[in-house]
Amino acid sequence: MDRTEIVAPPVHQLEPKRVIDVWFEDGNCIIEAEDYQFCLLKSFLTKRSPIFQDTFSMPQPEDAECVNGLPVLHIHDSAADAAHFFKAIFDSEFDLLALPRGGPAPTSFEKVAAILRLSTKYEVEYLRALQHLSLAYPISLPLWKACETSLTTFPVFPSALATINLAREVDCTWVLPTALYDYCKFTGPAEIFSGTVQDGVLLSLSDADKQLCLEARESQKEASKDMESFLTSPLPADCTGDGGCAVNRLTWTHILNKRRQDGFWLDPTEAW
């Protein structure tokens, strides 16, 4: 019997793509993330990042990879994150950190998350644009109520789940109380355990945060029940009202029951 050897087709290595917005003709180093290359200036990078300063100070081997005579540094970050990060460093018109009228310019959560991740990793402190997250998830109730209308800089409000994971990653833990509260309002136990697919990617909390959310849901339910107890408790004997108190209590009890059916029983601040 003839035996035919099956030969796998050759694998063609695709050439890395240049990121034109962050490709400077007078650049003296190339950084590659995934299959994308950025031609940058070492002096800018080393001045702003001690991590890049240490990296570029190391002697290069004679057989180091080069493109057009320039050394290539591979970083293990997403190309999209790297593009936002390098643009924030090199492009003066990239006004993520601009502060018109005392507040940061409107932007997207994706940009803020990318720059926060990489500025934390590469220790570029001035780019840690934490004010955007602080406005979206403030630490006081008055600011939180104001945030619902005008303070947030995100035209599309970020996912609470994505915000929680980002806050853990870049150590901006002060946004966690409101982000976790927001997440618990709309997320059932099954989804807390299994995670949520967003833009084709499965996002999930750490085991510790899953436990935290399950416990918090019970606390939020109990806080709503406290108001129900207040509304249904007997009127004090010395009440001088003309019956309006009882009518108002009954009205608000009906409203609370309707909101409970709509899921608002997990949002005690809204119920109160």
Rank of each mutant, 00 (worst) to 15 (best):
K111M: 14
K111L: 11
V112W: 01
V112S: 09
V112L: 02
A113M: 06
A113I: 08
A114H: 05
T120I: 02
K121G: 03
Y122Q: 00
E123Q: 12
V124S: 00
E125M: 10
E125V: 10
L133Y: 05
L133N: 14
L133I: 08
I139M: 13
S140Q: 00
S140F: 00
P142K: 01
L143R: 12
L143S: 12
L143Y: 04
K145I: 12
A146M: 08
C147P: 02
T149R: 10
T149F: 12
S150G: 10
L151Q: 10
T153G: 05
F154I: 08
F154E: 08
P155H: 08
F157P: 09
S159N: 07
A160I: 00
A160D: 14
A162W: 06
T163Y: 04
A167H: 04
E169Q: 13
E169Y: 04
V170N: 02
D171E: 14
D171M: 13
W174D: 15
V175G: 03
V175W: 05
L176H: 11
P177V: 05
P177S: 05
P177R: 07
P177A: 06
A179D: 08
L180S: 13
L180G: 09
L180M: 14
Y181M: 13
Y181S: 15
D182F: 13
D182Q: 15
K185W: 07
K185T: 12
F186G: 05
T187E: 06
